[in-house]
Design a protein around this nucleic acid. Structure first.
Length: 283
DNA sequence: ATGTGTTCCTGTCCGC
DNA sequence: TGCGGACAGGAACACA
């Protein structure tokens, strides 16, 4: 679910209550999510100060004073929400535990951060901060689309000779970090590229065009606080509103908004996932 | 080495 | 109302 803009929004929202704060207690309510939690996770988190909270791809990373980094992935349905006042002056300020509240972080400033994930496709692990880049979940991730190493030359090179459809290629986290089903559909629609087109078949010019569009779509979504569909929430429980700006995703049978197009958004399935696109203007 | 289909899990929605 | 099936923002894994 949460793609780069949603994870970025959650991460920013968690900073006031987590960054620079000590985890006074971590309640770990089950042994695993997608994979088992690391050994003694609660003990290794207890008393650790979060020295930095940051995002890499769709991961939230919490660097700890213990020399470890907590790696968090929200999967499809994961949420991290804050409750309580940051000054810790008031009591009875936390809502009752809900179904699927799997981990609760109690922070030194009185706030709580609750990780809730109905489908449990999410994950948590601990790794030495010094060797985080070698961690099996992190090491193969491609460049950050909003960073300097992602550029036209890179994308042209990495897509060259690829036989996979461009839609599938852009979903591949080894090629580019952080794009998911929504934003790939939006990017290809804005670029007027047919999602079925083989990645290696696109001209260099068209691939180059994708770079600023990817950056724009993600930046706009971040500015809107992400997209709220079923259960996504910002850290403060608020909804993002980028979903109101969708041009393609979840708009099957609705008119294409591209000026003078007049086409109709279609839904097809690629690699087992829905693709929404306009067969008329996306070529 | 690449490309594709399956799988994990719960919740919601739609048609009968 | 109830039931069955399709589908959901991800991505590792097994297999051709």
């Amino acid at each position: 679910m949460p793609e780069l803009p949603e994870v970025e929004t959650v991460c920013k929202g968690l900073i006031p209550s987590m960054q620079g704060q000590v985890i006074t207690r971590a309640d770990v309510n089950r042994p695993d999510l997608r994979w088992p939690f690391p050994d003694n996770m609660a003990i290794r988190l207890n008393g650790a100060k979060v020295t930095a909270l940051r995002r890499r791809s769709k991961y939230v990373l919490a660097d700890l004073s213990t020399g470890e980094t907590l790696i968090i992935h929200l999967g499809m349905s994961g949420r991290m929400t804050v409750s309580g006042d940051p000054l810790g002056q008031f009591h009875h300020d936390h809502p009752a535990a809900e179904k699927h509240d799997h981990v609760v972080f109690h922070m030194g400033n009185g706030s709580r951060v609750t990780f809730n994930d109905a489908r449990r496709f999410g994950a948590m692990d601990l790794a030495l901060t010094a060797t985080l880049e070698d961690h099996w979940l992190i090491k193969s991730i491609g460049p950050e689309p909003l960073g300097n190493t992602f550029n036209e030359a890179y994308l042209i090179d990495v897509l060259a000779n690829k036989n996979t459809p461009i839609k599938t290629a852009l979903l591949d986290q080894r090629i580019i970090a952080g794009l998911g089903n929504i934003y790939v559909c939006e990017v290809l629609h804005r670029a007027r590229v047919n999602p079925k087109r083989k990645a290696g078949q696109l001209s260099k010019t068209r691939v180059a065009t994708l770079v600023p569009i990817i950056r724009d779509v993600l930046s706009e979504a971040i500015a809107a606080g992400g997209s709220s569909l079923k259960d996504y929430r910002q850290a403060d429980g608020e909804l993002g509103y980028f979903q109101h700006g969708f041009q393609a995703y979840d708009r099957e049978d609705q008119p294409c908004q591209t000026s003078d197009c007049g086409g109709t958004i279609a839904r097809i399935v690629q690699s087992g996932r829905s693709t929404f696109y306009c067969p008329k203007c996306q070529r």
